[in-house]
Write a protein that binds this DNA or RNA. Structure first.
Length: 480
RNA sequence: CGGGGUGUAGGUCAUCGGUAGACCGCCGCGUUUGGGACGCGGAUGCAGUGAGUUCAAUUCUCGCCACCCCGACCA
């Protein structure tokens, strides 16, 4: 036995080493041949499928229809909105040759689809009766990352992007708020990750938006992941792409637009938030396998009754819509235990000679190794359901507790700097909203504004940096 | 883009101026199985790439390419 090869870096020793290890050993992903690209292996893609499945329903509940727009965008489209092209230029992948010839106009691999979609919107929208138009697409986008990191920053990533057009800015604003609400609920109730919803600062908002809403989540190393975005685009793109409608008085009006997205970055946040030294820990709601049943047969045990009991338990759970797997492969018991720990399966059911004799099953929790619950077939579905629910709640509460414990107020810049040099996390501090102060703070501490939390209360404060008057405490932190 | 590192079996790495080895994994047979089982047998390599030095290069020198890590940049 050589544990050197099998063991994973401890999470507390070196979190990025741990993170890479877990991803590779749990076979979620590996690096692709081109820098910054990743191969989603089946177990990693299963997580994305689970996210898609859950979120797609919610997206449709917002009134969206799914569609698909092309990967290639004429370069000229991007140039139509000034802030947009300026923001994205440094990270574009541009195709200059095709079919063995140099292209007359270079083609951009989409970094996001506003431009190509809104060119179509300008033709599709003629009347106020065509509004609102709400379209979502599940696709891949490319942004040339100079410093890639599994899931959190990859050159190509998968996401959904929703794009809506409305008659009024009030409607658009309602849309971005609803989209944000959807994401917050998804993160909290499905992925079990606590965070702060709020508004981005001017310098952090989307290139081309009037305002951007976000959900910001604290990771165990004190750095922060932006979990989604929801942009109020105002009429910026409408004007650039002439997306106009005739109102009921016959007047030509520009539409008000929004876009909102959630990407495979969410998988990175999921791994970092819940994982431990034994590997992944998945919240039941998202776990592709919620329960694994492991029959434990020895030479002297009664194979027939063990296997029969395992099969019965499997069928009962499957019949109750629990995602269950029965592993009767010939790997050793220890191997299986470690393997499913690594994969993060929330519940393991062991059925061996003892269980067969007593006609019961032993239930063990991934997240709580000391705990063993015995159940009988008549109760197993209910017991498992209850445990899955309980695990889901506990995981979220743990994330919430950690985030709250690592959210600190700083009332002067020395305090602020000290927090950044030690524990990091979220810092609540008054800021005058001058981008110069923001830039200086970033330069000196690495902390950027993460958001102005929703429901922030206006007060008379002074900017942590320049001491001029400030109305709100913004959340600061170091971004991933 | 700057700094550092690495390219050798499917993976992690060792080796060494005389053309390659360990462990894990994989295949076969047998014994096993309540927290990563063991024995025996077996398969797997243009040593990233190009040049130079040399009788001889995986090894030394230089170039190139790629990837990884750290930093800067960043929807």
């Amino acid at each position: 036995m050589n544990n050197q090869v099998k063991s994973i870096t401890k999470k507390s020793d070196d979190i990025s080493g741990w993170y890479n290890d877990v991803i590779e050993k749990a076979q979620l992903a590996e690096h692709g041949p081109v820098k910054g690209t990743i191969i989603f292996r089946p177990k990693g893609y299963a997580l994305w499928e689970a996210i898609q499945k859950n979120l797609d329903i919610r997206i449709k509940d917002l009134g969206a229809q799914n569609a698909y727009f092309p990967l290639f965008i004429p370069y000229s489209y991007l140039q139509k909105e000034k802030a947009h092209v300026k923001g994205f230029s440094p990270e574009l992948a541009v195709v200059t040759h095709g079919g063995g010839e140099k292209l007359k106009e270079p083609v951009v691999v989409r970094p996001t689809s506003e431009t190509i979609m809104y060119e179509a919107y300008s033709r599709w929208i003629q009347s106020f009766r065509d509004l609102p138009l709400i379209i979502n697409q599940w696709n891949n986008v490319v942004r040339w990352e100079k410093r890639p990191y599994y899931f959190l920053r990859t050159t190509e990533f998968l996401w959904q992007e929703g794009h809506s057009a409305h008659e009024s800015n009030e409607d658009a604003q309602k849309m971005v708020e609803n989209a944000l609400k959807m994401y917050v609920d998804f993160y909290q109730s499905v992925l079990g990750i606590y965070g702060y919803a709020g508004k981005k600062s001017e310098s952090e908002k989307f290139a081309g938006a009037d305002s951007t809403l976000t959900y910001e989540m604290l990771m165990p190393d004190g750095k922060i992941v932006q979990g989604c975005t929801s942009h109020n685009l105002g009429q910026n793109f409408a004007k650039a792409f002439k997306v106009q409608y005739q109102d009921n008085k016959g007047q030509q009006q520009f539409v008000s637009q929004t876009s909102w997205g959630l990407s495979t970055r969410s998988i990175g946040a999921l791994i970092l938030t819940h994982g431990d030294d034994n590997g992944l820990v998945l919240p039941p709601q998202i776990a592709p396998t919620q329960v694994v049943i492991i029959p434990i047969v020895t030479k002297s045990s009664d194979h027939v009754s063990i296997n029969r009991l395992a099969r019965q338990a499997f069928e009962i759970l499957e019949g109750n819509n629990i995602r269950v797997k029965l592993d009767d492969s010939d790997q050793s018991i220890g191997w299986k235990f470690n393997q499913y720990d690594l994969e993060g399966v929330p519940i393991r059911i062991e059925i061996g000679g003892r269980e067969a004799q007593n006609q019961e099953v032993s239930i063990k929790l991934r997240s709580d190794k000391g705990r063993v619950i015995t159940s009988i077939l008549e109760n197993v579905a209910e017991d498992v359901q209850n445990l899955l629910h309980e695990i889901q709640v506990i995981m979220f509460e743990k994330s919430k507790k950690f985030t709250l414990e690592n959210t600190r107020q700083a009332d002067n810049y020395d305090q602020f700097k000290e927090i950044m040099e030690t524990s990091r996390g979220f810092i609540e501090a008054f800021w005058c909203e001058d981008p110069n102060c923001e830039a200086k703070i970033k330069e000196e501490t690495k902390a950027t504004t993460r958001c102005l939390p929703v429901n922030s209360i206006e007060a008379n404060g002074e900017c942590i940096y320049c001491k001029k008057s400030a109305k709100f405490r913004w959340l600061f932190g170091q971004s991933y």
